[in-house]
């Protein structure tokens, strides 16, 4: 009876460890993509891009290589997500949608299909765990108040996404912040200046979110490492005590305190009294008698 529960928990724990391993790998992907994501904002758009390609053959070749690499990376990521969906029983029920084969938006159609497939599972799981944690922490007592906070997370996000312009505008970069290749930023002009102050819809950045993910990752690493490191140090550390003669105190041993040599020391010599001393002493008290 106890062994049965132990076995179940062991299997579940092993699965949780695997899930955390996959999360760490996915975080690593995200961290590696940040450099390319930042650099992509410097790429020129279509009229200037064509001019670059016409000017130099190497540019055209580099563009073709990058394009192929992007497509292959996206395909491999989608393949990974398919594999994860197939290996998990809970997400197998997600309905399959037929792939619409459009010539222009083929990649985006595939990405959209996968994300639509996991939407129901995602919302269900997140809302379930949110309710579980509310019940555990006693936050359900505030059920009558703070309606905005007590909504499900999926409902909150849906509310935000009805008008996402505010969120999207926060992610814009300005032209002055990014030096796009082939674009002149030295034009002085009032209208251009006003345009530069606002964000450019073509330049997207999420450095804040990236830094949050990185910070969380470092914190979790520090926590795990610090615990094991401290424990290892405690085990290895053997208390060393000073080498002290314990019998020296409490009159157990005779101590010899050697003092300095006595320098400039003379032995006393007997004093030689002068012959007139008796007479001198007689005369001192002679008048009284």
């Amino acid at each position: 009876m106890m062994n049965q529960h132990r076995e179940e928990d062991a299997l579940r724990g092993q699965a949780v460890k695997n899930q955390k391993a996959i999360w760490d790998k996915t975080l690593e992907m995200r961290f590696l993509l940040q450099k390319a994501f930042s650099t992509s904002n410097k790429l020129p758009q279509e009229p200037i891009r064509a001019r670059f390609c016409n000017h130099d053959k190497q540019i055209e070749q580099a563009y073709d290589d990058l394009l192929n690499s992007s497509k292959q990376t996206l395909s491999s990521m989608m393949e990974l997500q398919e594999a994860m969906l197939e290996s998990n029983q809970a997400t197998k029920g997600a309905n399959e949608m037929p792939s619409a084969s459009n010539g222009d938006n083929d990649e985006w159609s595939e990405v959209q299909r996968l994300q639509t497939r996991i939407t129901t599972f995602r919302n269900t799981e997140i809302d379930k765990w949110q309710r579980k944690i509310q019940v555990t922490t006693g936050a359900a007592a505030l059920k009558g108040k703070l309606h905005a906070f007590n909504q499900n997370i999926s409902d909150q996000v849906a509310g935000y996404m009805r008008d996402p312009s505010r969120m999207i505008n926060r992610m814009y970069l300005t032209n002055s912040a990014v030096s796009v290749f082939g674009k002149d930023v030295g034009e002085p002009g009032t209208a251009e200046e006003g345009h530069n102050m606002e964000g450019d819809p073509e330049l997207i950045d999420d450095s804040e979110f990236y830094q949050q993910l990185l910070k969380e990752f470092l914190e979790s690493c520090d926590k795990g490492a610090s615990e094991s490191a401290i424990y290892a140090l405690k085990k290895q550390q053997v208390k060393k005590r000073k080498l002290v003669d314990r019998r020296a105190s409490k009159s157990r041993k005779i101590r010899y305190h050697v003092h300095e040599k006595v320098t400039n020391f003379m032995a006393p010599e007997p004093m030689v009294l002068p012959p007139m001393a008796p007479k001198l002493f007689e005369n001192l008290f002679g008048n009284a008698s």
Partner: peptide, 17 residues
């Protein structure tokens, strides 16, 4: 990861997306 927590699975899928 079939026996694991569905919440972690959802997180993995979101980050991969």
């Amino acid at each position: 990861a079939g026996n694991g927590i569905g919440y972690l699975e959802a997180k993995n899928h979101m980050l991969l997306g």
